[in-house]
C-alpha cells in the first residue's frame, strides 16, 4: 500500500492554468524527496494537466480524485530535487 498521508497540503481552488501548476511546483520544490503533497483544486483542466506535468517533471502521482461537484484532490510524491 502506498502511504498517501500528505506532508504538505495546498488549496489552490480559484486558480487556473498555468498558475495551478506553478503553485504546485513551487510547493513541491520546498519539500524533501519522498514527501507527499496534497493539492486541492477546482479547475477541471488542471485536474488533468497538473498530474501530467508532475509526471513529466519526474514525480509520482499517487492519486487523482474528484471529491465533490467542483473539487479534485491530487496527491503527488516528490521523487527528486
Amino acid at each position: 500500500m502506498e502511504d498517501l498521508r500528505p506532508d504538505k497540503k495546498i488549496d489552490i481552488r480559484g486558480l487556473v492554468c498555468p498558475y495551478t501548476f506553478v503553485k504546485s511546483k513551487l510547493a513541491i520544490e520546498d519539500m524533501e524527496v519522498g514527501e507527499v503533497l496534497e493539492i486541492l483544486l477546482d479547475y477541471e483542466e488542471a485536474a488533468r494537466n497538473v498530474p501530467k506535468s508532475m509526471q513529466e517533471h519526474g514525480h509520482t502521482v499517487l492519486k487523482v480524485e474528484k471529491v465533490n461537484d467542483k473539487d479534485w484532490i491530487i496527491v503527488v510524491r516528490k521523487e527528486h530535487d
Partner: peptide
C-alpha cells in the same frame, strides 16, 4: 513561464 521549466523552477 520560467518557473514551469524543469531547468529553472522557483
Amino acid at each position: 513561464r520560467h518557473i514551469i521549466l524543469p531547468e529553472v523552477g522557483g
